[in-house]
Amino acid sequence: MKTSLLALLLLSTPALAFPVTVQSCNREITFDAAPTRAIANDVNLVEMMLALGLQDRMVGYTGVSGWKTLDAELRAGIAELPELSAKYPTREVLLDAEPDFFFAGWNYGMKVGGEVTPETLEPLGIKTYELTESCIFVGPKAKASMQDMYDDLLNLGTIFGVGERATTLVEGYKARLAEITASVDSTAPLRVFVYDSGDEAPFTAGAYAIPTALIEAAGGRNIMDDLDKSWATVAWEPVVERNPEVIVIVNYGDVTAEQKIAFLETNPAFAGIDAVKNDRYVVLEYVEATPGPRNIRAVEKLVAGFWGN
């Protein structure tokens, strides 16, 4: 009895290895099959899905237009997808879309004790994967590292059955990062402050926020890396005392990067800061300063801004 060519091909094609289990913050999640109706919250999480070619597995996204704008690159990637909620989604918004998967994070679409959490969505048939950077809100975590972003991509690859694609992507990012930082001398790191927003008190990146890892990769040190938080509000006094040599401006929202720089340069309280005196600023777009594929591009901008490369 002859075996057809199609049968041979099917026999030689490895089956997707489900069920799979991944770590999500302090939980393990098991998937019996790859999700087919996913939703991602925030621009950086959406871009992780796009980088893995998963837009055809998505039914929409949330949490973008209420705070940020999509650049041309992202608009093209999600042109066929609806924005289901301009800010954080409610359970009703998610249920109306009938998803089977929600990719979000703590303060990236979910609030501790809020109505949308992995625990509230699980009984509704929606599995949730949490952004690794945000895990500090629900348990202990090591300080931010580039591995946080890599792990998210690799876990998404496992969840959606595109593990090889994810591994190839991450290895490419690692190789590019090594190339960008090859000439960086980290023995005398520059003092760097991250200015996200706020006039009376600045909102900035602490030990667990990805800019700390980006800055370190580029040969700097976040002057707030002893802040036992992810993103948080601090006083201006310690910023002045620690005297950053470079200020990283996060560009998004109603107040532009240019306006933030003007605020720093016209306030007498900041006149003695080295970064202000020497006009040393590096502007990162929101999608570059939060975990996602553009973190590599962000390091490249930081290296150029720190060392003039």
Rank of each mutant, 00 (worst) to 15 (best):
I78C: 05
A38F: 04
A40Q: 00
Y61W: 06
M49G: 09
V43W: 05
A38L: 09
S65P: 12
E47I: 03
G60Q: 07
R37E: 08
L52K: 06
G60L: 03
K68Q: 15
T69N: 15
N41I: 00
G77V: 10
V59S: 07
A79E: 11
P82T: 04
M48W: 00
G53F: 05
M58K: 07
T69V: 15
A72H: 11
T36P: 06
A40V: 02
T69F: 12
T62I: 00
E80A: 15
E73R: 15
V46D: 06
A51L: 04
T36G: 12
A40W: 00
L70W: 13
G60V: 06
K68T: 15
I39P: 03
D42K: 03
K68R: 13
Y61E: 03
A79N: 09
A79H: 05
A79V: 10
G63C: 01
L74V: 14
L81E: 00
K68Y: 15
R57S: 14
D42I: 01
G77K: 08
L50E: 04
D56P: 06
L70R: 14
G63D: 03
E47C: 09
Q55N: 10
R57Y: 08
I78W: 05
Y61Q: 02
L74E: 13
L54K: 13
M58P: 08
A79M: 06
G63Q: 01
L81P: 03
N44F: 04
A79Y: 05
L52H: 09
L81A: 02
L50D: 02
P82K: 01
T62H: 00
I78L: 10
K68C: 14
A38V: 04
K68S: 13
R75A: 15
E73I: 11
L54I: 13
A76C: 11
D71C: 08
T36D: 10
S65W: 10
V43R: 09
A79C: 10
L54M: 14
I39Y: 02
L70G: 12
A76K: 14
K68P: 10
D42C: 01
E80R: 14
L45F: 00
V46Q: 05
M48C: 09
N41H: 05
A72V: 13
D56A: 05
Y61C: 02
G77D: 07
L70P: 14
L50W: 00
D42M: 01
I39R: 04
M49C: 07
E73F: 09
G77F: 07
R75C: 15
T69H: 14
R57T: 13
